[in-house]
Design a protein around this nucleic acid. Structure first.
Lengths: 208, 208
DNA sequence: GTCCACGCTAAGCGCCCGCTCACCTTCGGC
DNA sequence: GCCGAAGGTGAGCGGGCGCTTAGCGTGGAC
């Protein structure tokens, strides 16, 4: 028996916190479908079909199609936030912490491209209440990166004119990876992460 | 009487090349609707309604709803390419040309945010043939930026390890502006353009 | 004045959508 | 062996979708 966050191999598995098993299969199917075709172009019949179930089965585990998107979006944003927090709170100077934050954030967007696409680009498909909840998580994401940059400026490691604008640009660069990254392309998530960390350090004027 | 590309004021106006007038009104309505809600969530009744016409009127000027998206996407990409080409071919060193390219490209994405959103994010809603045509335009966009960076490296103005990767990052930064830019926010398109041009020059290691 | 091409509308067709409902297993508790 | 809860299915409802068609108003050519 594995706990919610573990899998047979012992590694943490994506969506491990979603139970029961049928609910998780439906959610994984929804992530794939939403990432490929977009929320509005995906039908409940398509989601249920990918999970090997009848259309009606979806409504045993989720009240509406939108609830599926909401759950995906919240879990995804929490994971993104956790990744950035881990990097922000490690030991080391602002330079190391920013490089770590960018490279791990980029790896997540590239490696989990289907999830990241849904999380980053389907926000507007949520209703007002759900969107407001997710936007609060986004502000926390923004704050984590901004604090690292502020630390770097205060310590004299960085030279930045517009902290807010630069924070926006750093996040923007990372997030857009989900739009263009191709698993069959020439770069691995690891390589893109390293390249982007280097580019970001240049953007903030970190000493080489 | 104004020509296709002119308006009453003499300034070039967006979508001026689309005639007759009713076809242009439908197209402008479609751009707004697609940008707000996405292609699949937009109905033909919504588009026609915004243009002040009946649903059937759409099919006098366009064969399908997809043809509208195709036309918007092609014209938008051609405009984007023109902006980059103008910057790439002006006089001056690679540093000035890259700064000009980034700032004008960003201004276009911020100022014409509705159009840019449709152009950059609704590509996957096109059918295979239309998508292939648009992807060819995208490769030309990519090439324009890459050539400026290559020129800068050859002239010793830039110091770049991965030219292709850096090109991707520069375009990525510009394109993502269409996702987050808010007309009611604190920054004007002009300001974002200047900030981003500065950040990009740092990314390529241009001398200050 | 007549005519017809053009631009447009009202009505609606066929389809598929999100979602529901009545019913059918399967299985642990006793 | 019986029962209720949990989890599933097949059929289908109401509605809105993209798109079509028959017909109307109008303005320029002659």
């Amino acid at each position: 028996m594995s706990t919610a966050q573990e899998t047979v191999g012992g590694e943490p598995q994506p969506w491990g916190e979603v139970t029961p098993d049928a609910a998780r299969r439906l959610l994984v199917a929804a992530v794939e479908a939403f990432a490929e075709r977009g929320y509005h172009a995906t039908t409940t019949r398509d989601i249920a079909g990918r999970a090997g179930m009848s259309p009606a089965a979806l409504y045993i585990h989720y009240k509406t199609k939108e609830e599926l998107l909401h759950r995906i979006s919240r879990i995804g944003h929490e994971k993104a936030l956790e990744i950035l927090r881990t990097a922000a709170r490690r030991d080391g100077g602002a330079t190391e912490r920013l490089a770590d934050a960018v490279s791990s954030f980029v790896r997540w967007h590239a490696g989990g491209r289907t999830t990241a696409r849904v999380v980053q680009y389907e926000l507007d498909s949520l209703g007002p209440d759900a969107r407001a909840e997710i936007l609060a998580l986004r502000r926390q994401v923004d704050a984590e990166v901004r604090h690292i940059i502020e630390d770097g400026v205060a310590a004299g490691e960085f030279e930045v004119r517009d902290v807010h604008g630069t924070t926006l640009a750093v996040l923007s660069l990372c997030i857009d990876v989900a739009r263009w990254f191709n698993v069959d392309g020439p770069r691995t998530p690891q390589e893109v992460g390293e390249l982007y960390a280097d580019l970001v350090l240049r953007m903030v004027g970190a000493a080489k």
